[in-house]
Write a protein that binds this DNA or RNA. Structure first.
Length: 626
RNA sequence: GCGCCCUUAGCUCAGUUGGAUAGAGCAACAGCCUUCUAAGCUGUGGGCCGGUGGUUCGAAUCCACCAGGGCGCGCCA
């Protein structure tokens, strides 16, 4: 459902009707017990507070246990001695030495040693890592779920395209990034709502309606030429793409000639504009939602700008802001250095966004008295705030970057600073084919629609590839490479790793007839025999999954999941490849049932983690490659 | 002119929010494999992290300035 009938709007002047909400960033986030690193951090912290009983909380919060980059440094390292040196008035080396002494007695720690400027390097007993396998197999895809979100309500708004035509590549990145980010936040413990804002008010959709009306007249057999028609259209005839022909036909079928003059000319807009507009928008939204469905995106809420305007919500918000003294009639300075040629001082209805960190105050009304896009968007965000979200995230194209500070200001004003606003900007995607860029032109009709792209390379390749870059960086999307079945294509490489895991487990079923090799049973298998470096490397990677989820969610960077999965797949393929030269290193060894079962537990756990990562990305974990 | 984002190996990009000797893929070079798990595998070389200062135990990461690229800059959304 779209906009609710009567949004209850928060009063900025009233602060106490907001329920207390948990802080967005808890000072001491609840420890995730299945995160090995988080657990060891607790161990280190306990030792540290024993050495420094009056350790300040803010220092304790800076203590971290991280994976080492160099295996010579052990498995994990902590900065505890360095960050607490100042507060303890002791040199880092002395604290490190004391930590080493206490930690060496630990159950999971094989050795602890001081190194470098004050690091304490920890080498864990292999058992500590292997103990993760039953945890992973028991928890299944829930392994890696974080609690940092603590149920904080987040609204992620994405796509939000003008419903003026089919979706194209430009919309696609935001759709994928938004959807994956929402999934990621949800895995990190946030209460997430996925939302689409339909920009179905304003000049663009009016132009769309005229274009659809032209197709309608054509369908009824008008004698007008396109030139004659276009000369009557305010602002000229836009949206000349073929995709509106069908809409015109549907309009003609539904309304016959009743929307035109008797001689099939242009009737007065009062007679048809709203009807045609609504009809066309509905048709476009049907198409867009179908495109999104094929892309694997299904949002929880679709909000309509038009309905928002119709309910007068925008006017109410402006009145309310005016009552709070945040609206005034004024004249803006021309932009410094580059004054538009037609610049003239003009009084406008302005929002005091500068009071909330913006550079200039922003206009809310156009000269014809209608609302600016910003004004309606303020009302829309007020609506979202009234629905009780703690955090609002908008996924925007990079060309909207300049828009962020004013929206941030508006949210601050509307929520009395209680609701956090954040934007994720998506840079442009350049489509490449045969080594050449594919030029996009809406008018020439040569743009690549999302549907074409999905037909050509498939949902999984589109989604994964869109997530192989930081969304803030420009991206080349090479149509030839995303279908390559080689290591340089991460989609293939990761899916292949999962398929190989499943393949091993299928083959194992023949080796152990009558034994159910499901995750529950494998969780009970002793894994002491997993001693080799490649095995332990793989398990260490699996141990990184929870903190990867947490860090990616906190940074709001879903692409990190893609990179993690690529590394995980590499570790697995390496293990698999050992069996190529030496068949005694393959997973399945009929003369070693116990060792084989242990390896199967590792393989099954790997499959679980790959699967749960792919689920976040919205990519199918395939059972076999075809 | 101002603001925001970006600059890392020949190319495309990571870099665990300030940690130790900066990583991966491609390309290059050198081997292996000729299909029982090769839609390949192993190894090597490759760097002034755009530049200059600063902050501190410690900087690709934070700050200032500069250079180059992208985006934006009153009634477009």
């Amino acid at each position: 459902m779209a906009i609710r009938d009567r949004p209850t709007l928060p009063r900025t002047s009233v602060s106490d009707h907001h329920r207390p909400r948990p802080p967005t960033r808890a000072k001491t986030p609840p420890m995730n017990p299945s995160d090995l690193y988080a657990r060891l951090r607790e161990t280190v912290l306990a030792a540290l507070t024993h050495i420094i009983p009056d350790l300040p909380a803010d220092i304790a919060a800076r203590v971290e246990v991280t994976p080492t980059r160099d295996p010579a440094h052990g498995d994990m390292a902590t900065n505890a001695a360095m960050v607490s040196a100042k507060a303890a008035r002791q040199p880092p080396a002395k604290i490190a030495a004391a930590l080493v002494q206490r930690l060496n007695a630990g159950a999971e720690i094989a050795t602890a040693e001081a190194a470098g400027p004050g690091f304490v390097n920890l080498r864990l007993r292999p058992d500590a890592f292997r103990a993760l396998l039953p945890i992973i197999l028991t928890q299944g895809e829930a392994y890696g779920d974080a609690t940092t979100g603590a149920g904080i309500k987040i609204n992620v708004e994405y796509v939000s395209a003008n419903p003026t035509g089919p979706m194209h590549i430009g919309h696609c990145r935001g759709a994928v990034v938004g959807d994956a980010l929402a999934n990621l936040l949800s895995k990190a413990g946030y209460a997430v709502t996925k939302e689409y804002y339909i920009n179905d008010a304003g000049a663009q959709v009016t132009a769309l309606a005229w274009a659809a009306y032209w197709r309608y007249l054509q369908a009824t057999g008008t004698k007008m030429t396109e030139e004659a028609f276009a000369s009557e259209v305010p602002g000229g005839l836009q949206y000349k793409g073929e995709y509106l022909v069908e809409v015109g036909n549907a309009l003609a079928a539904r309304f016959q000639a009743s929307l035109a003059t008797p001689d099939l000319g242009i009737a007065s807009p009062e007679l048809w504009l709203d009807t045609v507009k609504g009809f066309t928008i509905d048709a476009m939204m049907t198409e867009i939602r179908e495109d999104l469905r094929r892309l694997g995106v299904e949002q929880d809420i679709y909000s309509s700008e038009r309905k928002l305007v119709a309910t007068g919500a925008a006017d109410k918000i402006i009145d309310q802001l005016r009552a709070d003294g945040l609206i005034y009639e004024g004249v803006l300075e021309p932009p410094k250095g580059k004054t538009p040629e037609d610049w003239e001082p003009r009084p406008q209805t302005l929002f005091r966004s500068t009071q909330f960190g913006d550079d200039v105050d922003r206009p809310l009304r156009k000269s014809d008295g209608s609302n600016t896009y910003f004004a309606n968007d303020i009302a829309y965000h007020a609506d979202k705030i009234s629905r009780g979200y703690d955090v609002l995230i908008d996924i925007l194209g990079a060309d909207h970057g300049g828009y962020v500070p004013r929206m941030k200001a508006a949210v601050k004003a509307l929520s009395a600073g209680k609701t956090e606003f954040g934007a994720v900007l998506c840079q442009i995607v350049h489509i490449m084919k045969g080594g050449q860029p594919v030029r996009m032109s809406k008018r020439a009709g040569t743009y690549v629609t999302l549907r074409d792209l999905l037909d050509e390379v498939g949902k999984d390749a589109v989604r994964f590839t869109m997530l192989t870059r930081n969304s803030d960086a420009q991206m080349e999307f090479d149509l030839d490479k995303v279908l390559a079945t080689t290591r340089e294509n991460p989609v293939f490489y990761v899916q292949y790793a999962h398929a190989r895991c499943r393949s091993v487990l299928r083959a194992a079923a023949e080796m152990f007839p009558g034994k159910a090799l499901d995750e529950t049973n494998l969780a009970a298998i002793p894994t002491d025999s997993l001693n080799g470096d490649p095995e332990l490397t793989l398990i260490r990677r699996l141990a990184l999954w929870p903190r990867t989820v947490e860090a990616a969610a906190q940074a709001r960077e879903p692409h990190r999941i893609a990179f993690f999965l690529y590394d995980l797949a590499a570790d697995f393929h390496m293990l698999w490849n050992r069996g190529k030269d030496d068949t005694t290193l393959r997973f399945l060894q009929s003369d070693q049932p116990a060792e084989t079962l242990a390896r199967l537990a590792l393989v099954a756990a790997t499959a679980v983690v790959i699967r749960s990562g792919l689920v976040v990305m919205g990519v199918a974990p395939v059972e076999e490659m075809r």
